[in-house]
Structure formats: structure tokens, C-alpha cells
Simulated assay, not measured.
Amino acid sequence: MDVLGILNLGEIAQYFAKMAMFPVFDLAYYIVSILYLKYEPGSVEVARRSPVASWLCAMLYCFGSYILADIMLGVCPIDYFHNNSHILLATAVWYLVFFCPLNLFYKCVAFLPVKLVLVAMKEVVRTRKIAAGVHHAHHAYHHGWFIMVITGYVKGSGVALMSNFEQLLRGVWRPETNEILNMSFPTKASLYGAVLFALQEGHLLPVSKSLLICLFTLFMVISKVFMTARHSHGSPFALVELWVCHVLFGSPLTGNEDTHDHHGTAPSVPISPVKTKEDLSEGTRKRKSKKAE
């Protein structure tokens, strides 16, 4: 306790929790989100052929979590679009990423050191969205624990959950990339974070909300930056999940998370779509650009 008092950890956490996200952190969130959209196969061609469809996809990448959470809570799904400053900022990022002369903006934000900073800032926004979703649901449903968890989960990973709908706007249909079937690290972390914030809202977790936001943000930033730097799509929860699934569901303790007894090759099938969303798609784009040169 004396150490915590010397470090003023509580005051630092309160200051961090009250720190404004707009425009700096939200800008980083939009840049990284639309950057991942450009990694998707065919997204550049869609932007050239149909800028309206590309813009709608970009808006889903930036605001899909708000739209999905509003639908769940019975709020108008386009209510968030009255924030003109956010829409204009996201639109400017979309235009620069896809249509900047000589692709300069994309090259700058895709440069790994810059990208790592932007990814870290995006995770700060993600944690705030999870906490805000749980808090909003708590006010509407005081004892609705599942509603609180689901709302926080959707606020943190709504973009990934709506990925199949976004693919349809681009004329692509890949049901095997369903995020429920192949949960990526941000999706899993959003679910676990929603559970923690729901417990905190119900006063079952002896931690202040500001401190929980600070600690969970630190975990998300370190994990995501490390994974992005190594181009890894593993999960820090993998070992724990394997043991839990073995104890509760009788799943075999193997190195693959999605092992099924009735398919000998099943582990390799669901893992690959997760990589193609960011890593493999980026690699495909790089190979195409080298051939063009």
C-alpha cells in the first residue's frame, strides 16, 4: 500500500480514465481500422470501382461496434452518425489511405514503428469502448449480467463480428471467416474484458473502475504491440483455454485450439482464415506490388 501511495497509482489511473479520446486516439483507431480494410483482398479494386461501397465498408470498420451495440439495446443504429466530426475524420482517413498520391499516407502509417504506436493507441480506445458498453447496459439493465457482458463484448469487437456483412458490401462471401468460429485475440480479449468490467459494475471485483481501465489497457497494449511486431496471430490465453476446454468439455490437450475428434485435418482449417485477415492479406498485397514494379 505504501508503494502504491508513493506512486500515486490511483491518481494516475483516474487521470488516464478521464483522458479524452478525440481526436488523437480516435484518429489512430480509424487509421488502423481502415489500414486493415486495405489489407483485405480486392479492397483496393473495390475502392477504384465503387468508392461508395468502399466508404461504407470503412465506416463499418470504424463504427461497426457502435451500430451493433445500438441494435442490441434498441437504439437507432445510425444514431452515432450524428457525430459529424467523427464521420468527417474517418472519411478523411479513408480517402488518404486509398487515394493519397503515390500512396504516401499508406506507406507512412504502414511503416512498422509508426504502426506499432497507432496499434497501441487503438487498444486504448478499445478498452474504453468495452467499459462504456458495460456501463451503458448496466444503467438500462441493472441485474442483466449477460446483457452487460454481451454489450461490452460487442463494443470491443463489433467490427470483427460484422465482418461477414462488410464482405458482402465488397462482393465477397467467406463464411469460414466467421469471427464466432475463429475468434481472434482482440475478440477473445473483448469478451474477457467485458466480464471483468461487468463484475466491477456489480461491485463483485474489489478494484476501482479507473484502475481496471488502466490495467486492462496496459495488458491489451503490450499484447497487441508484441503480436503486431512479430506478425503473430496467437493468443496469450491459448494455454489456459486448452486446459479449461479439456476439463469442462473433454477437448484433447493439443497445440491446436480447434481440434475435433471426427476430423483429422480440422485444426488446420479454422486457423488459416484468421491469418488471412491481416497477415496473409498484407503479404499478398506486397507480392503484387513487387510484381508490378
Rank of each mutant, 00 (worst) to 15 (best):
G234D: 14
A189K: 07
A131C: 12
V240E: 07
L60K: 02
M21Q: 09
V97W: 01
A131P: 05
S184P: 04
D258G: 05
M162F: 06
A90R: 08
V3I: 14
V109Y: 00
V109K: 02
T91D: 08
V119C: 09
L7H: 03
I271A: 08
C76G: 06
H231T: 12
T177M: 13
F22P: 05
S232T: 07
P267D: 00
I147Y: 08
G10H: 02
L239N: 07
V97F: 02
V97T: 07
K288F: 08
V24M: 10
P270Q: 00
G42C: 09
S65M: 14
L27M: 13
L181Y: 14
V44R: 11
Y61V: 06
G152E: 00
N256S: 14
T127A: 03
A58P: 04
H138W: 10
V172Y: 06
H136T: 13
A266P: 02
Q200E: 09
E123Q: 11
Y39D: 13
D261G: 11
P252H: 08
G202L: 11
S54F: 03
G193H: 00
G255F: 11
T91S: 15
A292Y: 03
T276K: 12
A189H: 15
M21G: 12
R170A: 03
G10R: 05
D26N: 11
G255K: 15
F249V: 05
M121D: 04
T265W: 11
E45N: 08
H136S: 13
A140D: 07
Y36K: 07
N164E: 08
M220T: 04
V117R: 07
Y192W: 15
S50R: 04
Y66L: 09
L215Q: 01
Q200Y: 01
G264L: 15
A194Y: 02
M227N: 12
L205N: 11
V75P: 02
K115R: 15
I12N: 01
A140E: 13
A92K: 01
Y95A: 15
I6C: 05
Y95Q: 08
H143G: 09
L242S: 10
